[in-house]
Write a protein that binds this DNA or RNA. Structure first.
Lengths: 344, 344
DNA sequence: ATGAAAGCGCTAACAC
DNA sequence: GTGTTAGCGCTTTCAT
């Protein structure tokens, strides 16, 4: 038989469908003998419970919908991986959707996930998104949702984010404490939150430490490898190189690596480079990048933990705002001037 | 109202639920006026169709279950990304599960996906798996399934795989044609298919080209960075270095890079390195790795295309075996001895 | 063009 | 301990 239902088992055994249903769920109503018999024939007949039917009347799906902008970016794949880990452990399944940074796809995805009656949603907004409409619907339907990495403020959803500015300030403090004063910044687009906050952190740290800001050394461009590459070339034409570069992210740092090497400069001997990034990738760099580490797994775990707590009503819905700690990690791309024994 | 159903709309408008159902699906039975009216109030009331209910009686879920060993490995995240791309385009949704290379988790995942009545399954077997039982169930239930990358032979499921041995032979031929004769191989575990086939390809290519195989230069170990690192150290103690190393994969190649650099050797001037891998990662290596490129996106697309064709009965179930072409790409980590103009 | 009846597979509530 | 009834939200006949 191709598709065995409880009623088929019931007919086979001359009992009612309810008896079968209860027996299979190990309900105390049913005698051990009966359970054994039913379990056995269920197995023999190749019965597989229809979760769809079960979901329909329990109004619970044990399914979580995830919406991310992109899965090629390993930052997101690490996040999703950690979410699936936690979900599996807690008997939830995950429907994964990708918006490709398009707000219309994102909207479609969320609508479908609502339609599938997921128990909750984990969303990282696309860069385009500014329309809150779907999210209002989610609110109205009282579906638990947690934003991660990119979030709407002023909605009653929890969010898990990095706190960029203090992270930058802290890192710069370390660098300055080490004796560096000639510091450049390869900044991201100032239109973006990320670009702006990291830049502000940079300026604030220098100012507070009474270091003159050299505007020639703040080069604003994008977030990709080529941007770092070109920024370095531009910097190199100044005839006045800094000792060290603060890159807005790891791809930009890598672009800078490339241009520096092509210019015959050694890292870190001739020029130091550090920046935002995360471990798993920047470990592969040559030399390994000194980073302000943003751990995607921490973020993923925090977000799904929050969500499942909300789903299971262990916590009041919405409103939490959790900052994931950023850690400054000394590695090979910056020369230590002082001889600390402690590695931070 | 929090959770609006068709019957709520019907009551509101004093029509039957069937009318509403039909109108919402744009069924020809219903008059334009009625459709408009129903559509409007549906929107106004915040109606979201319950896909679970729809799935229950259509016995179609437009959902595909994916089972992979790991998502941290970017090879798999690229595969999944391409699958989701194609799925979205064809109005399918994807439930993603990760087995962590454990056959019991894999089994559990597949059973649950069957329970959720996915329309089809895409599976990359865990390294442990040798029990076919769940897959027999899938066969029996006539659920379309396509294996990718790692597959069971002798089942009536289609599979999409790389053909390692010819890929290795082809690459070695290029290398040998270029004038290399002193060639080492950092091999993977010979217990694994991958390790064995690549090793066989290596030996065959050398033999066919009448090059003496130096067994000291075939160093068998694992598939990780550290394995490449240690293999190189071992090689370097021989006092008899090859000109070039064929690494079983990109991580092993990177380990070899590291050890080579630490030993003061320049790549490619002092020693060449090439190996299996894929573009997106090996592009970041310094120098860029000359690779036998295995394109995960091609594999993902081919697999899901096959699956959806089977689901929609555009093709007969099972039995296709598709090989994804491997491409040899010259980059910076191997010195070209001949002066080709053409880049292969 | 609209609606009544029946059913998808399962389970909760209540009898017997 | 086992079974009956009813219903989850939707759709597919088949009448009207």
């Amino acid at each position: 038989m191709v598709n065995v239902r409880q009623s088929d088992i019931a007919k086979q055994l001359n009992v009612s469908r309810v008896t079968v249903s209860k027996a299979l769920r190990d309900h105390p109503d049913i005698s051990q003998a009966m359970k054994k018999k039913i379990g056995l024939t269920a197995r023999k007949m190749g019965y597989v419970p229809n979760l769809i039917a079960r979901q329909l009347n329990s109004r619970r799906t044990f399914t979580i919908g995830i919406v991310i902008p992109d899965l090629e970016n390993s930052f997101f794949s690490y996040i999703v991986d950690s979410m699936i880990d936690y979900a599996t452990e807690h008997n939830y399944y995950v429907i994964l959707t990708v918006s490709r940074e398009k707000s219309n796809i994102e909207k479609q995805n969320i609508e479908n996930l609502i339609g599938m009656r997921v128990d909750g949603l984990l969303v990282c907004l696309s860069q385009e998104t500014n329309d809150k409409q779907v999210f209002k619907t989610v609110e109205k339907m009282k579906i638990p949702l947690v934003f991660f990495d990119r979030a709407f403020e002023n909605m009653k959803f929890s969010r898990v984010v990095f706190n960029d500015k203090p992270g930058a300030v802290n890192a710069l403090n370390h660098i300055i404490l080490e004796g560096y004063t000639r510091i450049a910044h390869f900044a991201g687009y100032s239109k973006t939150n990320i670009g702006r906050e990291r830049n502000e952190g940079f300026r604030e740290a220098l100012t507070k430490n009474k270091i003159q800001i050299n505007n020639d050394w703040i080069i604003e461009s994008g977030f990709e490898l080529k941007d770092g590459y070109e920024s370095f070339k531009k910097l190199n034409t100044l005839g006045n190189l800094p000792e060290i570069i603060f890159a807005v992210n790891d791809r930009v740092a890598l672009g800078a690596y490339k241009a520096a090497k092509e210019a015959g400069l050694r890292i870190p001997e001739d020029i130091g480079i550090f920046g935002y990034g995360f471990n798993e990738i920047t470990d592969f760099f040559d030399p390994q990048l000194t980073v302000i580490n943003q751990d995607p797994r921490k973020m993923g775990l925090e977000a799904i933990k929050l969500l499942i707590d909300e789903i299971e009503k262990k916590t009041r819905t919405g409103h939490s705002k959790i900052y994931i700690e950023e850690e400054f990690i000394w590695r090979k791309s910056v020369k230590r001037k002082l001889k600390y024994t402690k590695i931070m």
